[in-house]
Design a protein around this nucleic acid. Structure first.
Length: 831
RNA sequence: GCCUGGGUGGUGGAACCGGUAGACACAAAGGACUUAAAAUCCUUUGCUCCUUGCGGGCGUGCGGGUUCGAGUCCCGCCCCAGGCACCA
């Protein structure tokens, strides 16, 4: 055994051994408890980064821990391989996205191997492979049959840089999630998945997922944005139609003094048709439509509008009210029309002041001062209260009035109670090349026709040249576009949009259960055995995107009979970012730490150890070179102890109890078992790897402190007890630093792999102490410590405390009012 | 504005059910070994006061409260990070 720890040799050796023995291949075994542990699979961007290393290390520790605890652990890895960066890189390097992608996969797979992760590599797949996306195309067809995939013309988010449409979830603060450039609205025909059909179930289950962080659930609830209210109809004064509005404040209806429409509202052209206002209105509409979505959404714009010249009737008051077009009304929420109640809505208030529109106060607070008259009103009163000036509803509280007013209109077919959601259908068309083709054909006589199932997959052609402009080559590539109609056989044209890459990641977790299945997307016995994922680990950035889409897809696949679970991920851990010098690692900041370099310098085990030791998983991890060196130093300390005492350690069997210990040995024996207990509980119950590692460090520190001469009369037990401590440390550290511990395990004389050893158990009787330390407080302040027999009763402990020298000083001559005794912990003397 | 986290030494972080605040590590200082350095080992290390002790006071963002006892529970604030936001 080398006297110094040299990671390189032993890491390659054991990686080769695990691979050759195929130790982490797993099959279904109904006799053992299963555990499906999954980390979010990476996009093959070229090289893994520290965020991946951290994510996958956390997962690997749990996987290895559970495996040693007798679970059948599914721990797979694959590649989220479709996406824009491949196209951009291919254009730049004058190569093909497929070549670029597969080369990256090869490189990154090798990086993951070098980190020693315990994946079942036999299940690996890349989503850009036809054997994967063919099933996704099948799901599309089945969704099309069920009306869950449909095409519609609408305003969509268009990223001019990426030259494609984006789903609402992929627009962050008005900018593209990928390139951070502003997104504009464009009217286009697009394919959608009807996620809104599942909106209630998606929302309800956020209350039934105790294994998810509250933060993520809240973000999803906000995104779904359920609000209950009323749909109310305002007839046009012309008698020619009506305007429908959504409002959560039907109680303020009597105060609605004008109407605001979104610029995109379909009635706008008609309302101003042939009027003197027409030109101004249309100009205003054009100007507003061209404003960047980011500005419109961020509420930065001043509220502006223009009178259409038309009016409608407030159904409650019967009065004629003007109809405005306003820049703050969004077509995509509610009906694109808002009844304006300036006295009770701040936006309407500002608008009314600006254009000198009437203000009517119809709600007064239940207690306290009254809302001032419109002329002196400084801001809208937006709270609930009691209705005034509201006909038969005057005197009614807001909450009751909301329903009553709506029911009253309902009798005249002018209103109904309803629920609105912020969630829109998921737009999945992408005007990109490197994605799964949407299996649809357009025929001049038959229209939109789905590709026959038997003709799947619709292969993405791989012999195209990538145009330097960045636009998709597909629409101009005749061998792909030109086809026949599946229905009538006539010449027809293929859909050239591809699917959003989030579609691939919405079901890959199920495919891992049966990655080699080639007669259907999923193999029921295997999928039912493994699903759901017991523990999912990944970054918080997918809180809404990937995690919401996957939940939706799981429910769709369930309803199609492919899955039996309602939710894909039972427990979710969102790990923090890896930061350096206080900010996220990025090329522009020049603070990127390269995993390859770290492995070369310190070895994979040290990198893994540091990732786990420096912070608990859900918090951000501050990368510190000095911290990494500390981790390396600790491994060296363990190594040195074994190397320096190998002959003594190898000559004995580990102490397993029996026979009295004296001197320092009982403490070491107890510490060994305390450590087993703490590490087991920290990993199993809390994923607190940092404190688990700290506990092993304490054990190792103690091991260095005790010496043969301190063993007293039982010196013959010294090496057995020491060996038991070393073995425990090595076993407990195995999930964290698997190569390092495997090597030491063999050096201790074992011939079978540590990976196959059962997790160590602690002996309760070894934890027992003859004497315990009791803290003594006087009036809640720590004043002394006394040692008493562990079995000592309340009285005895109290006596020991009261008769302590230091305590005597504090209580001399004073009356004791009370003595609180917490058995095994402390005594508090209250004067 | 709303929602969710969080605020503990010079730093990363411990303290799990209300019971010794600062485990473990990093950094720093001093010492040992060495011709020297590296490596390693030992000691000190929250602040502060004095009479330097097995001493006292203070201390977990701020202000209150509950309790024998509060980093932990309650009320009211402040600050930081993330998410959402003209959503009717």
């Amino acid at each position: 055994m080398e006297s110094r720890y040299v990671p390189k040799d032993i890491e390659e050796k054991w990686q080769g051994y695990w691979r050759q023995q195929d130790l982490f291949r797993v099959t279904e075994d109904p006799s053992r408890p299963k555990y499906y542990l999954l980390e979010m699979f990476p996009y093959p961007s070229g090289r893994i980064h520290m965020g991946h290393v951290r994510n996958y290390t956390i997962g690997d520790v749990v996987a290895r821990f559970l495996r040693m605890n007798g679970y059948q652990v599914l721990h797979p890895m694959g590649w989220d391989a479709f996406g824009m960066p491949a196209e951009n890189a291919a254009i730049k390097a004058k190569t093909h996205p497929a070549k670029w992608t597969y080369e990256n996969i090869d490189y990154m797979r090798n990086q993951l191997r070098k980190l020693g992760f315990s994946y079942d590599w036999s299940r690996e797949f890349a989503t850009c492979d036809p054997s994967y996306y063919r099933w996704e195309q099948l799901f599309f067809l089945k969704m099309y049959d069920r009306g869950l995939a449909y095409k519609r013309k609408s305003y969509v988010n268009w990223c001019t840089t990426c030259q494609t449409v984006l789903a609402n979830e992929q627009v962050e603060g008005g900018a593209c999630w990928r390139c951070d450039q502003p997104v504009v609205q464009k009217e286009m025909e697009q394919w959608f998945f009807k996620i809104t059909d599942y909106v209630d179930e998606l929302l309800d289950y956020t209350e039934k997922m105790p294994g998810w962080p509250e933060r993520v659930l809240t973000m999803q609830r906000n995104w779904i944005g359920k609000s209950t209210g009323s749909l109310l109809r305002f007839p046009l004064s012309s008698g020619d139609g009506e305007i429908e509005v959504f409002t959560t404040r039907a109680d303020t209806l009597f105060g609605a003094t004008f109407m605001s429409l979104a610029p995109e509202h379909p009635l706008v052209p008609k309302l101003c048709q042939g009027r003197p206002e027409q030109q101004r209105v249309l100009e205003f509409v054009d100007r507003t439509k061209q404003t960047k979505r980011s500005d419109r959404l961020e509420g930065l714009l001043e509220k502006e509008g223009v009178d259409t010249g038309s009016t409608c009737i407030n159904p409650a008051t019967g009065r004629e009210i003007p109809i405005f077009v306003a820049n703050f009304v969004l077509m995509e929420y509610g009906t694109g029309a808002v009844m304006a109640v300036p006295a009770h809505d701040q936006r309407d208030f500002e608008f009314a002041r600006k254009y000198d529109l009437p203000i009517r106060v119809v709600i007064q607070p239940e207690q306290g001062g009254a809302v001032p008259a419109p002329e002196t009103l400084g801001a809208a009163f937006e709270e609930d209260g009691v209705l005034v000036d509201s006909g038969e509803f005057t005197g009614m509280p807001s909450a009751a009035a909301r329903e009553a007013v709506t029911r009253w209109l309902e009798q005249r077919a002018a209103g109904k109670l309803t629920v609105q959601y912020r969630l829109r259908d998921w737009g999945i068309s992408r005007q990109r090349y490197w994605g799964a083709p949407i299996p649809i054909v357009y025929c001049d006589s038959c229209g939109t026709v789905p590709v026959a199932e038997a003709e799947l997959p619709v292969l993405l052609p791989t012999d195209v040249a990538m145009p330097a402009s960045g636009v998709s080559p597909l629409p101009d590539y005749q061998p792909f576009v030109a086809t026949h109609c599946p229905r009538c056989g006539a010449a027809a044209r293929r859909e050239t949009d591809t699917m959003d890459t989030f579609v691939e990641s919405s079901w890959y977790f199920a495919r891992f259960a049966c990655a080699d299945h080639d007669s259907a997307p999923l193999d029921p016995p295997r999928v039912d055995y493994w699903m759901p994922v017991d523990q999912y680990i990944g970054g918080i950035e997918h809180a809404v995107l990937h995690l919401l889409y996957s939940r939706f897809f799981t429910k769709v696949l369930r309803d199609m009979g492919y899955l039996k679970v309602d939710e894909p991920f039972k427990n979710l851990l969102t790990q923090g970012m890896v930061i350096k010098d206080g900010s996220k690692m990025s090329k522009s900041k020049g603070n990127v730490v390269d995993p390859d370099e770290m492995i070369k310098l310190y070895g994979a085990d040290t990198v893994r150890l540091f990732c786990l030791f420096a912070a608990p998983p859900e918090r951000d991890l501050d990368w510190s070179e000095q911290g990494v060196e500390g981790s390396a130093r600790f491994l060296n300390r363990v190594w040195r102890f074994v190397a320096d005492h190998r002959s003594q350690l190898a000559a004995v069997r580990p102490y397993r109890g029996g026979g009295e210990l004296s001197g320092e040995l009982p403490a070491l024996h107890r510490k060994t078992h305390e450590t087993i207990k703490k590490v087991t509980e920290d990993i199993r119950d809390r994923f607190h790897f940092n404190t688990a590692i700290a506990a092993v460090m304490e054990l190792v520190n103690l091991l260095y402190q005790v010496s043969e001469t301190g063993a007293g009369a039982t010196v013959r037990h010294f090496w057995p007890v020491a060996r038991a401590a070393v073995e425990a440390a090595v076993q407990l550290l195995n999930p964290v630093v698997p190569h390092f511990t495997e090597e030491i395990w063999r050096q201790l004389g074992y011939s079978s792999s540590l990976v196959d050893q059962p997790w160590p158990t602690w002996d309760e009787s070894a934890l027992a102490r003859a004497e315990i330390l009791i803290v003594v407080q006087v009036n809640g302040k720590l004043r002394s410590r006394v040692t008493v027999a562990a079995a000592a009763g309340r009285e005895e402990v109290e006596q020991a405390a009261l008769s302590d020298d230091k305590i005597a000083k504090f209580i001399a001559g004073k009356a004791i009012r009370k003595v609180v005794v917490v058995p095994g912990k402390l005594v508090n003397i209250v004067l």
